[in-house]
């Protein structure tokens, strides 16, 4: 009976350890990405990555058929204003919290095709903010920090797509309001 208890205890601790590891991994990987990217480019600003090749190693499995723009965000000091022209070909703006979940997405696909030719103006607010306090399109991040990633088709003639990314912005809302 004592042996059986030990076997059950070892099994339970093994399972619990594995589960805790699985829960921790996304946070650790995102933290590493966040710190490295913030060191290199800072946060709360947009960085355009137009050409992907074997030297593109900021995140695993980059697509050579896409162009990217990223904004590592930190909402501790207030909301961000994100602004981007929406091109004709495939384009998306996706928001990731620190556990890697893609919690919000804006695209020019499916029911959002009407966004093509318009300019997306989003206010990104933190988990403790009240979205109703802000005008226009508001997205609430479940975590204070995270990543906004724009993807744009890089196949065929990509000049319009690159122009769309280069004319996008990600900056603190108070800077936009005072300028």
């Amino acid at each position: 009976m004592k042996t059986l208890r030990w076997v059950i205890a070892i099994f339970l601790f093994g399972w619990l350890g594995q589960y805790l590891m699985a829960v921790m991994i996304p946070y650790l990987v995102m933290e590493r990405l966040y710190i490295k990217a913030a060191e290199r480019t800072g946060y709360n600003q947009l960085v355009v990555i137009s050409r992907i090749d074997e030297t593109s190693r900021w995140v695993v499995r980059p697509s050579p058929d896409l162009m990217y723009a990223s904004c590592m965000y930190n909402l501790e000091e207030g909301p961000l204003a994100i602004s981007a022209p929406v091109p004709e070909r495939y384009w998306s703006m996706q928001f990731y919290q620190m556990n890697t979940d893609n919690f919000a997405s804006i695209t020019n696909q499916r029911k959002q095709q009407s966004r093509v030719g318009t300019r997306v103006e989003v206010t990104l607010v933190g988990p403790d903010a009240s979205p109703s306090d802000y005008a226009g399109e508001v997205i609430q991040s479940p975590s204070v920090r995270g990543v906004m990633l724009m993807r744009a088709s890089g196949i065929g003639n990509d000049s319009q797509m690159l122009s769309a990314l280069n004319n996008s912005r990600c900056s603190p809302l108070n800077q936009v309001a005072s300028s």
Partner: peptide, 17 residues
């Protein structure tokens, strides 16, 4: 799934996209 994606496909889109 989250752990696997964090290691081998970080910042993946959801299937609708």
């Amino acid at each position: 799934t989250r752990a696997m994606i964090a290691i081998s496909g970080l910042l993946a889109s959801t299937q609708q996209d």
